[in-house]
């Protein structure tokens, strides 16, 4: 069971501002989702390794060869805001 306090914590970690109504709504919804997933616990997975990837390959690497992307302007232009050659972001006040 997830309670309202946990919803507030998750919202804070994701930097989301929720209204009291939304907190209520998401508490219910998240519980529904977790309950749904809870069905999986009926399976015995004692000898099964956790799956983190869909395909089973390891050691995928690339050679250390420089290849400039070539479309710097498009990358800068794509950002929500820019200032000349810089990306421009709201000033962040340090500390939680």
């Amino acid at each position: 069971m997830i309670d309202r306090e946990q919803v507030q914590k998750v919202a804070h970690l994701a930097r989301l501002k929720l209204t009291p109504d939304e907190e209520e709504q998401f508490t219910t919804q998240l519980n529904d989702i977790l309950d749904y997933f809870e069905q999986l616990s009926e399976l015995d997975v004692t000898d099964v390794q956790p799956t983190t990837r869909a395909i089973d390959v390891s050691n995928v690497v690339r050679p250390d060869h420089h290849q400039p992307y070539g479309q710097r302007e498009a990358l800068l232009e794509n950002a929500p805001d820019r200032d000349g050659e810089f990306f421009k972001v709201p000033k962040i006040v340090t500390g939680d």
């Binding site: 690339r62 420089h66 992307y69 710097r72 990358l75 050659e85 810089f86 990306f87």
Partner: peptide, 17 residues
């Protein structure tokens, strides 16, 4: 990624998706 990892004074030269 394939962008250069060496120091560059000009901003946002070594960037890629």
């Amino acid at each position: 990624s394939d962008s250069s990892a060496t120091f560059t004074a000009d901003p946002n030269i070594n960037i890629d998706p």
